[in-house]
Design a protein around this nucleic acid. Structure first.
Lengths: 141, 141
DNA sequence: TCCTAAAAGAGAATTATTCTCTCCTGAAAG
DNA sequence: CTTTCAGGAGAGAATAATTCTCTTTTAGGA
């Protein structure tokens, strides 16, 4: 994706366009495996050595508030980020820190249908995310 | 639950029984809303003022490894713990930090049936956890 | 009762994240 | 064209959660 496209995304959300914001957006879109803030900072510093960690954290916060990125839930005390906005679920590898996107419209339909019938008392569902925990068959990660 | 029962749990897992371990176990079982380490430490200190934070963290780690408790996934950088071992899902309140257990055998059956038919390539499923995000209808939390 | 490995304890160290305060920039107003 | 002003960026300190290191204590079997 080109810098111009990242600018467009920012403008659409009413955010000011700055080189740092483009760099953070680019990092999240390029890095696979749902990067941590540290991964993002390392990636950006290759081309942009002077960016401050505080700036990256502030940009991440702004991007989340605007809805351009999301946080991924984990069991660890490190936050991870996700550039994919379409509804999707995650495969959590129990033998590594790998997290892989899993999209499945049939599953989504089944789940929404299920909760259309089966209400949870005093709870209005906004989103459903299935965490699929497991590992690959072969030994290589 | 009585101290004796916590001892039994520890012994069953081959863990040494100590007052600190019983206190941590008791805290997690008594505290609702999936406590943080801080919640647990505060609770224990009421009866056991000298316990060190490092001990609590070490006990939590040991309990997780033995399978007596679990960590709950969150989007935050604070770890939370869960004493409930039966398969269950969680309701995440989007307007507070509340996390509530949600058990639903019918849902579990539907999901396992679904993934019995629909395999994910090169992935062996070990567990399925649905994160249900939403909020209560009324304003009170 | 004694012995030994495991556990607890204290406090420092580490790590991730957030805060504070200042400076800069770019658009808008005059 | 200059001034103003608000939002953003930056640096470094501060904070908060967790982990580590080293020493002392203890549980539980011999």
């Amino acid at each position: 994706m080109k810098a111009e496209e990242y600018s467009t995304k920012l403008i659409e959300k009413g955010l000011k366009v700055t080189p740092q914001r483009i760099a953070v957006l680019e990092a999240i879109f390029e890095l696979k495996n749902h990067p941590t803030a540290e991964n993002i900072i390392d990636y950006i510093r290759k081309n942009h050595p002077n960016i401050s960690t505080a700036t990256v954290y502030k940009v991440l916060e702004a991007l989340i508030l605007s809805g351009l990125i999301k946080r991924v839930t984990t069991e660890r005390d490190i936050m991870r980020y996700d550039a994919k906005l379409e509804p999707h679920h995650h495969l959590y590898y129990s033998d590594s820190d790998k997290i892989v996107d899993y999209s499945d419209e049939e599953l989504d339909k089944m789940l929404t249908d299920y909760f259309k019938k089966k209400k949870i008392s005093n709870f209005k569902i906004e989103d459903l995310k299935l965490n699929i925990i497991g590992k690959s068959f072969n030994n290589r990660k």
